[in-house]
Design a protein around this nucleic acid. Structure first.
Lengths: 344, 344
DNA sequence: CGGCGGTTTGAAATCGTTTGCGCTGAGGCT
DNA sequence: AGCCTCAGCGCAAACGATTTCAAACCGCCG
């Protein structure tokens, strides 16, 4: 019924009356170089097709010490930003004949460490990690280049590892300047995971924009501990009740943005009339929101493609070379969630 | 520096001065049953820890004929509906000690077939597929139960295979009835991939609701060929220009909904004043759209969990038993995108 | 007729694990 | 003394593929 499940080199060899070596050589297209008679070769090919043979990748991987597999470790696939990245990575990997082992760490460093260990046992040839980002010690082992690794979105400046990330400082600068130019002075910054470059760079951009405009940074206006929507919700509730003079919010992720939206809507605060808002991560729905959202676009498709390219470059060349860090510019997508305070 | 990469049973055996068999047995916790002296066992354990040993899963899989891996085949991870599903599947798989091989078929049956073949070579122990759904012939081989498979979201009624899906007929019924009850008679249905149960059942529900209300089904009001946003965009443009008496649209997916939104916004048609809209798939952003969207919620988290449960039940029990089909009810989430024509 | 060269193929080792079976030596029983 | 039992472990064969080394066969030359 299904000999496919069990057809092996030996099966073919047995039926043809030849040895496994010959079969292997023919099936790997080495018939010529090993001078297998074309008659034998054809019979083997025919039989392989008939039995619907395809090689056991485990055995192959064991022998060849390579598995044709790469690993992808990601904090949370249900986040559309990560999902988009995953999409391009799977497709690119497939195009190169590689399979993809996926781990979702749920934004938990411990699970991240576990996942990476697990993947290594599976003899993956390369690893793309979107790290949780607070702690990077478990990546030190990779600086030797034993297993190609590329970091995406968040990275560790003190580790010599290739990465591709968005220019988070620039993004926050663009967002904050945009609001300042429109007359905003009291701007809250609702943050993600402290310690991650994605967060800290954004906060730095925010501070810088304020400072260069001669506005004192009010530390109480900087709050938040994670990239989830709860952070946005809670911090917004607190902010609007505490600081009546607040006119704008910078949300450091799309999920945080949701929380802000929810809280503002519950409080009956309208955007942008009472509070202006800029969110990180442009999304398909951003334009269709009640107030079309002004956002900072990160080029996630390009990030994914670059990560794959970087990774396969390293897989291909045995000499790793200098690890590159690629920073992609961000872009401000202006819609209607920022009010111009100068008019009126 | 990193002996981890190369530590093997042999390494440990060599250092301790014992045989690999003993090491294997101890490391598998079989010390007692094989009567290994506790002294030897402890030395082995200690050495394993020291060398940071962890077994080569390829070799293990080859020998044991099981890889501790399952496969997930999905049309498009960047679609939030699928992303949410993927999230629960990865997490559940991990909780059971399994890894996850992921394939994105880009809604292409050919790639789907390829992907499934590839995964089988990797000796996966089970497979969850969200099929493209038009053609299911390549699933026939699985009805024998050789490799546990569960279908999600779309399925094939003529194949005896376990599946978990939403009650699409019900969903469309709920949506269409909702609109009819509010006085709508001319309701367009913008469809996804014809031939897939997800699409066809929804269309059936739409027809049924119309029929039971005594409204003649106008075939020209049923259009669309794919679940993507372009379908929504194009068909909406055509519909509104052709049928001036149209008062409502049923969009059979969240992506189609985006297209509808875009087209309507370009045409300057307001929701729900001129046109009412109900979309399949409730999303986090649905409530925050310009017009909070009335949607049909499918319980994707439950679907993912059930799929995993079904799959592991089949993996665990060698006797497959009757394949179960599980249909999850849908739920209408009423917001404000449907106008009540009876008032006013 | 021995050896050589070219052609076609096979045997066997290897990758890292697991596991059925059997070996060895000590002690006890008759 | 002979035999059995049992603790404690090792040998070797798998799993399915790749690859090195060399064998077998042929014709042909000297």
């Amino acid at each position: 019924m299904d000999p496919a499940a069990t057809a092996t080199l030996k099966t073919i060899a047995g039926r043809i009356g030849t040895s496994v070596s010959t079969v292997s050589r023919v099936l790997n297209g080495r018939a010529r170089t090993y001078r297998i008679s074309s008659e034998t070769a054809e019979r083997i090919l025919a039989m392989a097709k008939e039995l619907n043979f395809s090689p056991n990748m485990l055995a192959k991987g064991l022998r060849l010490r390579r598995s044709n597999t790469i690993g992808l470790v990601i904090p949370d696939i249900s986040n559309p930003f990560f999902a988009a990245m995953t999409h391009t990575v799977t497709v690119e990997a497939r195009n190169r004949g590689y399979s993809l082992l996926l781990c979702d760490t749920q934004e938990d460093t411990l699970r991240e460490v576990e996942a990476i260990g697990l993947l290594q046992n599976r003899m993956i040839e390369g690893l793309i990690v979107l790290p949780v980002g607070q702690d990077g010690r478990h990546f030190e082992a990779f600086t030797s280049g034993s297993l190609p690794l590329v970091l995406v979105d968040r990275y560790f400046p003190y580790l010599r590892l290739p990465y591709v990330a968005a220019d988070n400082v620039l993004g926050a600068l663009q967002a904050t300047r945009h609001m300042i130019e429109r007359g905003h002075r009291r701007i809250a910054c609702i943050c993600g995971l402290p310690g991650s470059t994605a967060n800290d760079d954004r906060v730095r951009g925010y501070r810088q924009a304020l400072t260069e405009a001669g506005i004192a940074v009010d530390e109480r206006l900087i709050a938040g501990q994670s990239f989830g929507s709860q952070t946005g919700y809670i911090e917004t509730k607190l902010m609007v009740s505490r600081f009546k003079d607040l006119t704008a919010i910078l949300a450091l992720s799309n999920l945080i943005g949701f929380g802000v939206l929810q809280a503002l809507s519950e409080e009956g605060i309208s955007i942008p009339e009472r509070i202006s808002l800029v969110c990180f991560d442009d999304q398909p729905y951003s334009a269709f929101l009640a107030t079309p959202m002004t956002t900072i676009r990160q080029r996630h498709a390009e990030m994914g493609q670059l990560a794959v390219k970087l990774l396969f470059d390293r897989i291909a060349s045995s000499t790793p070379g200098e690890p590159e860090g690629i920073i992609l510019p961000t872009e401000l997508i202006e819609r209607r969630s920022v009010r111009d305070l100068r008019i009126h």
